[in-house]
Design a binder for these strands. Structure first.
Lengths: 351, 351
DNA sequence: TCCCGGTTTGCATCCGCATGCAATACTGCC
DNA sequence: GGCAGTATTGCATGCGGATGCAAACCGGGA
């Protein structure tokens, strides 16, 4: 079959077919490669050629086929972003910002949403089949899965989690540090007994926060600690507080919740069901600095993650590694920002 | 160049290269088409062939290349999902659920996030270049853009917005109806003066809600109405309430906010800055039924969107139209659910 | 044993674009 | 005007897999 015929094979059911570079070439009376070059960045093409091709392309409504381009350049210009369902209220911002950062570099986001953080297996296969150029994940992978990704030589950046002693790239908020701050402030202000509301068992973030708090409490010689476990949601925040009360009989001086939403749940439960005044009867702190933490009714004392810088950083780390696979892994930890809200009795000002 | 040579051209910088169907074929001692067939659903292949190929494939870590497959089948198995930034707190759920519904049908989500609902131009081009099989949008397109999409014969489903008198598919919550319910309840309970907090000017959803409320108020002969305008965020919710007070001098009997987050802002402002008791001094209602609306401190009277059914419906509508492009457009409107929270003085029970 | 119908399999080709290489056009300069 | 040097352009081919068609194979019935 000749090249000319190629431009006439309408194979769409409707008889129409999307214009290809051959169609444009024919209409413009130039070669297909010329068309290809006009639609590339660094390619050489004279102004005359550019005009002719663009005019023909507009007439036909031609757009380069990113799929075909990806096949030949071995770059899909897509990255996989993996999020898990539980972490409500916070990841939305992350996702929108990430998408925009990637977008500025011509990279699209292929979204993978997990029911729970454990469901990574199913999606990994898909990511590989779609030949994503990189993976940004807010969920953990098993060692075996990591090996698969490594074998495929796909750059990977963890978001808010990392692997100690392993060569992986990650961007995270220093949760231990944040918890340390909270604990220090509370202890300095005289709190002696603590309740800890931890996150779901398979959440790395939740675990880090809990350990950060426990370690610091232990370092400060505090041992009156009661731990209960929730799932990052409002309802379990309330349940957790109730459990805490049941376990202890009386309220602790302070409650450290693994995130703001659970802290809010605790505050509501403390007020509504136990008639406690927050912060006079009990201090309650959270983590994240999400929107609702700022609502006047709660004004949660918390540590805010620098979401914007983190997403920015994560996106550029991944893009750099896509463009230069030789780059060695890098772990970046951002400090959060202590928000001295009104839900805890701590000093308003350092002296 | 012979077929055999094809299997040996390592062109990766590292000397490694992802296994292709040719590699698998060679190792298994079969033809490339055989490999292709083993990795397809309806294709014919004997068990013996299946085993040989799968074994070779596993040995090589082969995975079919979805990009190449898309090129030939004319199906990318990707849909574009367009969201805009402003609508916080609510779209996250939508997004995760949509992704999961699509995922069950083997369809991936390519995410496009808009800074504002007006920025559709930039992303449209990208969606077309990536040859998405369909578009699900929670942002509006211009008539010109719609024509482009139509020309490209890409199925399109609107989420929570639609075009009257036009042949487009859409899934939405009946916002007018919901506002009608709220207004009826409030008026029945004796509210006579109203404040309306509307959404940002380019939000279709916001507009629908405002008009729904205004129309019903007018139908019921209520004319004491003050309108102010926010951006769906908490802060402007507070500002709006302050403006409302400034404009009127005294609080209206009820405030109808275009979404829950602004309703929460109004409640906080009313309580904190104006010392009003909600709902005794003033009723405040929202829309959406998001998580924070349920927090005990607010317990917002609102209309909850049936998010799960809506996303489910939207996903399947789009998939059906991808598989059968002849299907005519369809508009589905779901009724919301009136949540009689504690932020408004309305009857708890119909008699 | 031979022939027929139904499966499996291989062959060849195409999807739409990028790119190395060779051919051609154009530029400035002596 | 001629020529070296550079900027454009066209040609041919490949990226990885799907698929129509024909060849090969398989089993069963006469």
């Amino acid at each position: 079959m000749s090249k000319a015929e190629k431009t006439t094979n309408n194979n769409d059911k409707t008889g129409r077919r999307r214009a290809t570079s051959y169609d444009v070439a024919e209409l413009a009376g130039v070669s297909q490669s010329a068309v290809s070059r006009v639609f590339q960045d660094g390619a050489s093409a004279s102004k005359a050629m550019r005009d002719r091709v663009m005019s023909a392309a507009n007439k036909l409504g031609y757009r380069p086929n990113a799929i075909a381009r990806g096949l030949i350049t071995q770059r899909s210009n897509m990255v996989a972003v993996v999020i898990s369902k539980l972490t409500n209220l916070y990841y939305p911002e992350v996702l929108v910002q990430l998408t925009q950062h990637f977008s500025e570099h011509g990279v699209r986001v292929l979204l993978f949403a997990l029911e729970r953080e454990g469901d990574t297996g199913k999606v990994l296969e898909q990511m590989l089949q779609f030949r994503v150029d990189g993976i940004l994940t807010a969920a953990m992978f098993t060692p075996e899965q990591l090996k698969t990704i490594d074998n495929a030589e796909i750059p990977l950046v963890f978001y808010n989690r990392t692997l100690k002693d392993q060569l992986v790239s990650s961007v995270r908020c220093d949760q231990e540090e944040g918890e340390r701050w909270l604990v220090d402030e509370l202890v300095n202000a005289g709190h002696k007994s603590f309740g800890i509301v931890e996150g779901p068992p398979d959440s790395v973030v939740g675990l880090e926060r809990k350990m950060g708090a426990l370690n610091e409490l232990s370092a400060l010689g505090i041992s009156d600690i009661t731990t209960v476990s929730g799932d990052f949601g409002y309802e379990t925040g309330r349940e957790c507080f109730a459990q805490l009360m049941q376990k202890r009989g009386s309220p602790p001086d302070a409650v450290i919740a693994a995130n703001d939403v659970m802290a809010i749940g605790c505050i509501d439960e403390a007020r509504e069901e136990f008639g406690l005044n927050v912060p006079n009867d009990i201090s309650i702190v959270g983590f994240d600095g999400v929107g609702p933490a700022r609502y006047a009714a709660y004004n949660v004392t918390t540590v805010r993650q620098p979401v914007h810088r983190m997403t920015q950083s994560a996106a550029s780390m991944l893009i750099e590694r896509i463009e230069n696979p030789e780059l060695s892994p890098e772990k970046r930890a951002f400090s959060g920002m202590l928000i001295r809200g009104g839900s805890a009795r701590i000093q308003t000002q350092d002296e």
